Amino acid sequence: MSEELVRTERLVLTRPVPADLDDVFALYSDPAVWEHFPSRRHTHRDATAQLLEHVDESWRLIGLGSWVARDADGTLVGTGGCDLRLGLAWNLGYRLARSAWGRGFAQEVIRAALAAAGRVRPDLAVTAYLLEHNVRSKATAERAGLDLVWTGPDAGNPDRDAVRLLYADRPLSAIVVRELTAT
């Protein structure tokens, strides 16, 4: 089964294409979806274009990456899926439009991502790397069945007091934890 197009209960998940740039930029430039990490908000389309290039590379090299999630009428709900992180683990990510929060869409994307990662590289753990004060994202990772495996400083964050949490679907070696949390 191709992972490039997946249908969930209410969403169509597709591998991003250049035509998605405007919608994805609108999402990534929205301050509401970056309330927990405002310095990562996209302020220029080039940042979104680079993101989409990175996602495309993941698809080309590994056969899986993040999707663009749209509802039945084609409206962008968000982005999400699994990307390979440092060749060591899948990184589960999800970013939804503010209008899509609280409607269960993240769990639909996550279920599809976990299944796809299990088909593409079942030997790799699925992780979620998130900020401690992002309680919605934390609850989403926990609802997805991931367990907290590490808490520590957020390397590279301009907020020196920021704390990162690393969740995983299985135990991780100390080496993998160190590598995943060092960047």
Rank of each mutant, 00 (worst) to 15 (best):
E4K: 11
E9K: 14
R10T: 01
L11S: 00
T14H: 09
T14V: 11
V17P: 01
A19S: 13
A19F: 04
A19N: 07
A19R: 12
D20P: 05
D22L: 06
D23R: 12
D23T: 11
V24M: 01
A26H: 05
Y28Q: 13
Y28F: 11
S29C: 09
D30R: 11
W34Q: 06
W34N: 11
P38Y: 02
D46G: 09
A47M: 13
T48Q: 03
Q50F: 13
E53I: 15
H54V: 15
V55L: 07
S58N: 15
S58H: 14
W59R: 05
S66N: 15
W67T: 01
L76E: 05
V77M: 02
T79Y: 01
T79D: 01
G80W: 05
L84Q: 04
L84H: 02
L88T: 02
L88C: 03
G93Y: 00
R103G: 02
Q107A: 06
I110T: 10
I110G: 00
R111L: 07
A112S: 10
A113Q: 14
L114S: 00
P122G: 11
P122C: 08
V126N: 09
T127S: 04
A128Y: 01
L131F: 09
V135F: 10
R136F: 08
S137F: 02
E142K: 11
E142W: 10
E142F: 07
G145Q: 00
A155N: 10
D161Q: 08
V163P: 02
V163M: 08
L165H: 13
A168D: 01
I175D: 14
I175M: 14
I175K: 15
V176P: 01
V177L: 13
L180I: 00
